[in-house]
């Protein structure tokens, strides 16, 4: 079971890495979702897997019986899923807005944030040839 989980996590993370490298933003976003799933499975695998008794303390007992499942990873994964869901939803809204604004969802075609600066006349043009050329053109 653990081997299967480990392989699944590996495949998920590999696919996520591939998708995250895409210039197309929706693909990159899918990559993030897959990476999150891989991380969640990793947490689940960290807390023992297999057929176990439900983690309920019997009435009168002070602690869990031996062989009970570990409830903590599931609580963690639940939290992480909720958070990941929120983040992915936000990123999706952002990508959609960007798509509406730029007419494309390709990261390379968006270059508003990192335009070269205007170079002051007092700074010698030789210091920043690229920016100066851009300005001249």
């Amino acid at each position: 079971m653990e081997t299967a989980l480990a392989l699944t996590i590996g495949v998920l993370v590999a696919a996520a890495a591939y998708l995250l490298l895409a210039r197309d933003l929706p693909r990159a976003l899918l990559g993030f979702v897959l990476l999150g799933t891989g991380a969640n499975l990793a947490i689940l695998a960290a807390g023992r897997v297999g057929t176990m008794a439900p983690p309920l303390v019997a009435s009168g007992a002070e602690a869990l019986a031996a062989g009970a499942a570990n409830p903590l990873p599931q609580a963690l994964v639940l939290t992480a899923i909720v958070i990941g869901f929120g983040l992915a939803a936000f990123a999706l809204v952002l990508v959609m807005r960007a798509h509406a604004e730029f007419g494309t969802a390709c990261a390379e075609d968006m270059d508003e944030a990192e335009r070269p600066d205007e170079v002051p006349a007092t700074a010698r043009p030789a210091l920043a040839p690229a920016a100066a050329r851009k300005e001249a053109a």
Binding site: G86, A89, F90, V93, R97, A100
Partner: peptide
């Protein structure tokens, strides 16, 4: 509140 805010923002777009 959160879900409807998000979905309405998406649909509004």
């Amino acid at each position: 509140g959160t879900i409807t805010a998000m979905v309405f923002a998406l649909v509004g777009e």
